[in-house]
Amino acid sequence: MSRHPVTTAARTEAPVTTTYREALREAHRDALRSDPRVFLLGEDVGRYGGSFAVSLGLLEEFGEERVRDTPLSESAFTGAGIGAALRGLRPIVEIMTVNFSLLALDQIVNNAATLRHMSGGQLSVPLVIRMTTGAGRQLAAQHSHSLEGWYASIPGIRVLAPATLEDARGMLAPALADPDPVVIFEHGSLYNLSGTLPVDPVAVDISTAAVRRSGTDVTLIAYAGGLGKALEAADALATEGISAEVIDLRVLRPLDDATITASVSRTHRAVVVDEAWRTGSLAAEVVARIVEQAFYELDAPVERVCGAEVPVPYPHHLEEAALPQVVDVVAAAHRAVGARA
């Protein structure tokens, strides 16, 4: 995973070696330090140290009022986050995984995403909700699904998916500054991603996709856990003389149509990678937009590499088969490029 450390522009101090997990933790530390309205709440964020150790040490540093352990009550504590946000605080709600967020879906859809509209603009919900998503660790069907595409279909919320250290470090601050709810998805396979970051956080724009690699023959569009696979596929394609551009969606809602369309207009071919089930997926939405906005630029049908339509199975070989793999991305790119002739 560390084959593609994110490099950043000019910096004065030597960069620090860190991980995705630590970058997230630093972002929380900054937020808690710089704004007394910010507090973190969720299951085991305090004494346990965070189920994925993101908040490790924060309880000791900020105390239990601001790093607040909750009972297993996803609906209630997410709703409580919404209420506190209505009163002008800046809660960060951590839900252990997207699978469990379904117990809070009512609060997220029917309150967080909707209160501004239903109240005719009187209310604002400046809430950040973070959760883990994704498969790849043999956790079976109730711990492995990628449901972020569902969230990306909900008007009223912004949906982010940091896939790099820089975004893990830099997305929380603008998310907290957003007057509306922001849902952040952290892919479970990324926490140990390591690399370097500049000492001072780089501002991250949470409205645009990022081109992670430039290329001319085909655009690979991915996000979260899929980004590393797309970059690896691009490396493999490069050895065959195929130049792939790689776009990291990173903002799943609202989608950055301009970046996608501009790239596809240059390469004329696209492959969309999405770990979620194919039907009704975010990949489906991206393909639809390409077809709507860049149809006449296309030299080949847009390809999709998605998760198989099966609850994620436990055995390693079946889980691998259920998820997009680098070879699948390479094969899809071959089909796209081959169709040129």
């Binding site: 299951e43 085991d44 004494r47 346990y48 140290g49 189920s51 352990d69 009972p71 297993l72």
Partner: peptide, 11 residues
Amino acid sequence: YAMGTALAREH
């Protein structure tokens, strides 16, 4: 305990 949360912290 519920993971790391002691009974008196959850109820």
